[in-house]
Design a protein around this nucleic acid. Structure first.
Lengths: 134, 134
DNA sequence: TCTCCTATGTCAGAACCCTGACATCGTTGT
DNA sequence: ACAACGATGTCAGGGTTCTGACATAGGAGA
């Protein structure tokens, strides 16, 4: 079971990595851009949770995106310590360019399995994640 | 879909990492030991394919295992360039000690989903991996 | 035989991710 | 009001993985 899960995950990672390379993006970078597009103003810790990595790892990825001018992070805040992050125009543009390539991969994956099992498959993946979780 | 797969995979990886830490092993190290126990004499490239990583990554992992005295690698071969690898007695012992912890995680994962969907779930994971593969 | 192709082992560099640790800010409970 | 706790951002160090590149061994085909 763990073997199959690892195998499928590795295949997805490889395919995404290859597709995103043409857009000068890595998988974690794309994940962050996608999250920020859906929910603008997320903080470093929010993105870490959303991409299933630690705050430290997310911090490194964000630094790369910041250096590339794809995101902007507030330097101060009026409430708490979290510094909200937003996409720049360049970030939106880059995301939309890469999105089609990623969606094509998602489609290739989804269409390979019977539609009737989709909901059960998604539910089982979530169930397994929760069974191992906190 | 990709999100769920990543989530489940991250949960598994985290749980295994935590369990194996008590045995002074990392996930890729354990994977190599398990493969070598099932099929003694595998080469570096064989292990790379079996663990879904590159030869370079496997090489680094193997160096760690060699330094720890858990495996032995032939220094020469009579056929080709591949250098067959075998577990040492210490390697077998370490593997058997860690195996129960890993199997417990596998059981927690498997029992969380209905038994009727198991075969379909495994098949779908394989199908997706192949759909993204070569 | 000689050449081309594939597979393998290896080195170098970069990116990603983790654990451990520290300081700071809000909230909570006393 | 004040101390304890949790959440956040950050630094340092180490481990894993990737791409790119090179040299070598074996087999396939002209």
């Amino acid at each position: 079971m763990g073997y199959r899960l690892k195998k499928a995950s590795a295949a997805l990672r490889g395919a995404m990595d290859k597709a995103l390379r043409e857009h000068d993006l890595t998988v974690p970078q794309y994940s962050c851009l996608e999250l920020l597009d859906e929910q603008p103003g997320l903080s470093n810790a929010d993105l870490a949770r959303g991409t299933f990595v630690t705050r430290q790892s997310a911090n490194v990825v964000l630094r790369g995106l910041k250096d590339a001018g794809l995101i902007t992070q507030a330097t101060s805040t009026d409430h708490g310590r979290s510094l909200p992050i937003h996409l720049t125009a360049a970030g939106q543009q880059r995301l939309h360019a890469a999105r089609s390539a990623v969606y094509a991969i998602e489609q290739r994956m989804v269409r390979s399995i019977p539609a009737r099992r989709m909901t059960a498959l998604l539910a089982d993946l979530d169930t397994m994640a929760e069974a191992l979780g906190p």
